[in-house]
């Protein structure tokens, strides 16, 4: 276990570094650097003056230095929590992250909790009552959840809310610590829309795992020694069918984060996703770079935690 943990942690850092190099290089491939964008967007001066301004900004930002030097400088600052300055929002990128990060993470957490809480019981019911109307309903719901793209589900829910409940997107985000009820009211719809999408594969996987496990000998033994149905299903069968479901949740962490971006846009939640889309369309590269870096960090952390949970739950890995 300790060896496994060490190896897994050792992989984490180079992967994150690799991802950050990738993002850095990508942002330098852009036709026209930030200096040009800034000057051409705002400037009205003659081209000679603009040329000079561009040179000046490049020197100020260190864009005239070799890319390796720039990367090392960026990384050094990033590790100290300084991600540069956003010229479109006119404040340090770190401030944007501090403001937006908790909101997006809250949305992601709620989504995952809701999805798991409703997908696993439904998956179990569907497997235990295989080929009954309950099973068919669950399967239909999960199949349709898989086929409806998340942005369409989101837009449909928004339409229903607007049409029948005179819903208005919130003008200002209320933090959980300020007013929990209002905060949850703002997040409930995006949470449900995305939970529906995320829960479909979890439901299907729980069902197929349960169907497999329920045919194992030890389940028959449990029944034979006179255990009640409830104990057989929950204590013996479910426990052993949850392992792949957990890896799967980690695997879908990426889609969860991508879905957060889309949900924030649809339901006007000012989180990291809206900031990212905005920054991409205004070509605010320091912000894009920082948000993607943080998202990669979150994604890798989710995967790490899932792997560790898996190792902890499966004795075959724990003692290997």
């Amino acid at each position: 276990m300790r060896k496994y943990l060490a190896r897994r942690l050792l992989l984490f850092v180079p992967t994150l570094l690799g991802a950050s190099i990738l993002i850095f290089v990508l942002m330098r491939l852009v036709p026209g650097d930030i200096a040009e964008i800034l000057v051409y967007q705002t400037g009205t001066e003659s081209s000679a003056v603009q040329e000079k301004q561009i040179q000046q900004i490049r020197e100020e930002l260190g864009l005239d230095r070799p890319i390796v030097v720039q990367y090392v400088a960026w990384l050094g600052n990033a590790l100290r929590g300084d991600f540069g300055y956003s010229y479109t929002q006119r404040r340090p990128v770190t401030d944007i992250l501090k403001e937006r990060f908790p909101r997006s993470m809250e949305l992601a957490f709620l989504t995952l909790v809701v999805a798991v809480l409703w997908a696993i019981p439904l998956g179990v019911v569907s497997a235990v009552r295989q080929n009954t109307w309950a099973d068919y309903t669950v399967r239909l719901v999960s199949i349709s959840g898989l086929s409806l793209p998340i942005f369409f589900t989101g837009v449909l829910i928004l339409y229903g809310l607007v049409r029948f409940f005179q819903y208005l997107p919130p003008l200002e985000f209320v933090a959980f610590v300020d007013n929990p009820a209002e905060n949850l009211k703002q997040l409930i719809w995006p949470t449900l829309a995305q939970a529906y999408y995320i829960s479909a594969p979890i439901m299907r996987l729980t069902r197929s795992q349960m169907l497999e496990v329920i045919r194992h000998d030890y389940v028959r033994t449990a029944r034979a020694k006179g255990l009640g149905e409830r104990a057989v299903v929950y204590r013996h069968a479910l426990r052993n069918s949850l392992l792949p479901v957990i890896t799967f949740i980690g695997w879908w962490g990426g889609r969860l984060l991508g879905g957060i971006v889309i949900m924030e846009i649809i339901f006007a939640i000012p989180g990291m996703g809206t900031a990212l889309v905005q920054a991409v369309s205004y070509r605010d590269y320091p912000t894009v770079q920082a948000i993607i870096f943080v998202m990669a960090l979150v994604y890798l952390t989710i995967n790490l935690l899932v792997d560790l949970a898996y190792a902890w739950l499966d004795p075959r890995i724990r003692y290997a």
Binding site: L22, I23, G254, A296
Partner: peptide, 24 residues
């Protein structure tokens, strides 16, 4: 393999978004 790791460290939509930012 490390390059694949780095590419897969980004959530797919986010990677696609950043590529679109770079490519136009």
């Amino acid at each position: 393999q490390r390059a694949v790791d780095a590419l897969m460290a980004l959530p797919p939509i986010v990677l696609a978004l950043s590529l679109m930012a770079a490519l136009g």
